[in-house]
Nucleic acid binder design. Structure first.
Lengths: 338, 338
DNA sequence: TTGTAAGCGTTATCAC
DNA sequence: GTGATAACGCTTACAA
C-alpha cells in the first residue's frame, strides 16, 4: 500500500478502469452518476486517501484560498487572540491565513499590502498602523475586486469601507460610569496615540459617561501616549504632577499603560498611588500576578472581533454581500472586575 | 489602464505579439532570448504589474509552498516569538505558513497533523504536545517524503528525526551555577511535566551544576508541575512546606511557574518569600511590572530557534540535506539579569 | 532566436 | 450514465 505515485483522479480512474471525469463526478455527487459506480469510486478514494489537489482547484477556480492579515504586533495579546477567531473559522472554510506584522509602521504596512496583493490573496483583514492616514495602498485591493475588512482600529478617514470594531465607546463609557458609581469625582483619561483616527470613540465614551454622571469635564485630566514608555511617563506626569486636585481614578486606552503608570507612580513614591483605581482595555491574564492590579478590565473580546471580521470577509468573497455595500459590525465590550 | 482581464503571460504575449513561451523565457532570463526582446517583455510586465500565478506554478512544480506549523499555544510568548523567525524567513523564500495550535493535547495534534498532511504542506515544523509519546501521526509525513522538523520540545523517544532545540541543559546549568555563585546552598528545581521527554536536559543541567559547584543533590528539592495552577501549587508546597531546611533559591522550567510560586508564597505569607531568588526560562517583558521579579531569566532566543527550524526545513525540502540524514541543531540560551 | 505543444490535477461542457 | 476534451496559467522539451 506504499507507493510514490501521487493519488490523483487519474490514478483512481486507472485503478477503477473508468474515465477521470466519471471519477470526478462521482466524488462530487453528480446526480447523473450511477449510485453503484459512485460507491465504488468513493471506496477507492477512501482506500487511497485521495485528497483533491488544492493548487489545481485554485488554478481552476481562479482563487488562492489565502486570506491576508496585517496587524501591528503579535506581542499584543489582543491581536494574538483575535487571530484565533480568524484562523479557526478560515481553516474550517478551507482558507489559509497569512499573518504579517506592520510593527505600527506605515512604510512596513505598505510593503506588506503590496506583497499580499501580489500573492493574490482572496481578501484582506487589517488593523491599520497608528501612522496610517492615507489609504491608497489598501484601496487598490478593492479596485482589483479583492475585499478588505478593517478591524479593531477604525479608519474613520476612510468612509467607504467594511469595518468590524470593538464597541470601545460602550467600553469606556461603562468603565467610567463604574468609577463614578464608586464615588470618584476626578477621573483621568489616558488615551492612545493623539490625533489618530481610531481613538475617538473611547474618549467620547469617557466624556459621555462624565456628562451622564453629572461630573464636569476637566481638560487637565486628559493626556495621551503613543505607547512609547517615555511618552507614557510624560503623560502620567501631566496628570499627576500638577498643583490642582489630583485624579483619584484612571481610564486607560490599553491596560499596559496602566502598568507603566503604576510602576512609575510607585517608583517616585507618589503618596497615594495605592488608592488610585484604574481600568483599562485589555484583560491580560498576567494581571493576577501584580501587587496592584487594576480595579477592572474592559474585555474587548478579541476572538469574537476576529471571527466577525473573517465571517464578513468570506461573505464578501462569496459575494453574499456586495463589495460596495459597506458594512459596519460592532462587538460589545464587557467590564470584568478583578 | 484599468481592466478586469487578469494579467497573465498570455495577456502580455498578445500585447507584445509574441508567443507565451517567449514571454515566459524572457521573464526568466533564458539566455537564448534576444536582449531587446527581453527588455520589451520586462517593460510590459512592469507596466501591467504582472505577477506569476502561484497556483499555476504550484501545480506545475507539484509543490504547495505551504509550511505547516503545529505548536501548543500561541499565548506562550516563546511560541509567539518563535513564529516571527519562522514566518519572516519563510515569506522571504516564497513560502506561506499555516499555524495551528494543539493546546498541548495529543488528540488535537493528531487531527491537525492529518489536516496538514491532506492539505499537502511541503514540510512540517512541530513543537510536540506534552502528551505526545507515540509518533505515528508525524512519521507518516516522512513516509510520504514530506520533511518534519521538531523544534523546542525534544521528542527523545523518536530517534530518527530532525531537531532544532534550545540548549536548555546549558541554560539551567548556567542559572544554577549563578545561584551557587551567589552563595545559595539549597537550590530547588521546579520542573515541567514529569516523565515527558523534553524535560530531561534542564534537569540534567541543574544536577551537573550542583555537582560542579560542590553541592550535593537532595531529592526533596525537586518537584514537577504540568503547568496547571493547582498542580504548580502542589509542587510549591512540596518544596516549601517541609520540615527540612527550606530552599533559598529556585530554578524553574518556565518563568510563569515562578510567578505562580511567588504569588502563592506571598498569599500564605511565607516568612521569607522576599529573599528567595528565582530564575526561570522565559524572559517575559512583563517581568518589569512585578514587585518581586525573578533574579534573572534564561532567555531562550525563540526567534533564533524558529529561524533555525525553518532554515533546516527548507534545506530538507530543497534536498540540500537528505531527508534521512538526521540533523540536530542547538541554540544557546543566555542568562539575563534583571 | 522564437514558437509549438504537452503536461501539472481539476471541473465543466458536450457528445455518445 | 459515462467518456472525451478543453480550459485554468505556467514551464520546458523540442521543432522551426
Amino acid at each position: 500500500m506504499e507507493n510514490n505515485t501521487p493519488v490523483t483522479l487519474k490514478f483512481l480512474a486507472e485503478k477503477l478502469k473508468m474515465s477521470v471525469s466519471t471519477v470526478s463526478k462521482a466524488l462530487n455527487d453528480y446526480p447523473t452518476i450511477n449510485s453503484y459506480t459512485r460507491q465504488r469510486v468513493k471506496e477507492m478514494a477512501q482506500k487511497w486517501h485521495f485528497t483533491p489537489n488544492k493548487s489545481a482547484l485554485n488554478l481552476k477556480e481562479k482563487k488562492s484560498h489565502i486570506i491576508g492579515v496585517i496587524l501591528p504586533n503579535l506581542l499584543d495579546h489582543f491581536f494574538t487572540k483575535s487571530i484565533y477567531g480568524i484562523e479557526q473559522y478560515a481553516m474550517q472554510k478551507g482558507y489559509n491565513v497569512i499573518i504579517s506584522q506592520s510593527y505600527d509602521e506605515l512604510q512596513k504596512e505598505i510593503l506588506l499590502a503590496n506583497m499580499l496583493l501580489r500573492s493574490r490573496v482572496d481578501g484582506l483583514i487589517i488593523a491599520i498602523s497608528k501612522q496610517t492616514k492615507d489609504f491608497n495602498h489598501l484601496d487598490q485591493f478593492e479596485k482589483l475586486g479583492v475585499p478588505v475588512v478593517y478591524y479593531t482600529r477604525n479608519p474613520s478617514f476612510n468612509l467607504n469601507c467594511h469595518k468590524v470594531l470593538g464597541n470601545t465607546f460602550q467600553g469606556s463609557y461603562e468603565a467610567t460610569r463604574f468609577l463614578i458609581s464608586r464615588g470618584h469625582k476626578r477621573i483621568a483619561y489616558l488615551g492612545g496615540p493623539k490625533m489618530t483616527n481610531f481613538t475617538h470613540d473611547r474618549f467620547n465614551g469617557y466624556i459621555n459617561a462624565l456628562k451622564d454622571g453629572g461630573i464636569s469635564f476637566d481638560a487637565e485630566l486628559v493626556a495621551y501616549t503613543d505607547f512609547d514608555k517615555e511618552n507614557t511617563i510624560n503623560a502620567i506626569q501631566k496628570l499627576f504632577m500638577t498643583e490642582s486636585p489630583q485624579p483619584t481614578a484612571l481610564v486607560a486606552f490599553k491596560e499596559v499603560i496602566i502598568f507603566d503608570a503604576i510602576k512609575y507612580l510607585k517608583s517616585i513614591k507618589h503618596p497615594n498611588f495605592e488608592e488610585i483605581e484604574c481600568i483599562g482595555f485589555g484583560n491580560t491574564p498576567f494581571i493576577h500576578y501584580l501587587d496592584h492590579p487594576p480595579l477592572a478590565s474592559i474585555e474587548e473580546n478579541p476572538q469574537s472581533v476576529g471571527k466577525n471580521a473573517i465571517e464578513l470577509l468570506l461573505k464578501l468573497i462569496n459575494k453574499d454581500i456586495g463589495i460596495g455595500d459597506y458594512q459596519k459590525v460592532m462587538v460589545d465590550c464587557k467590564l470584568v472586575l478583578h
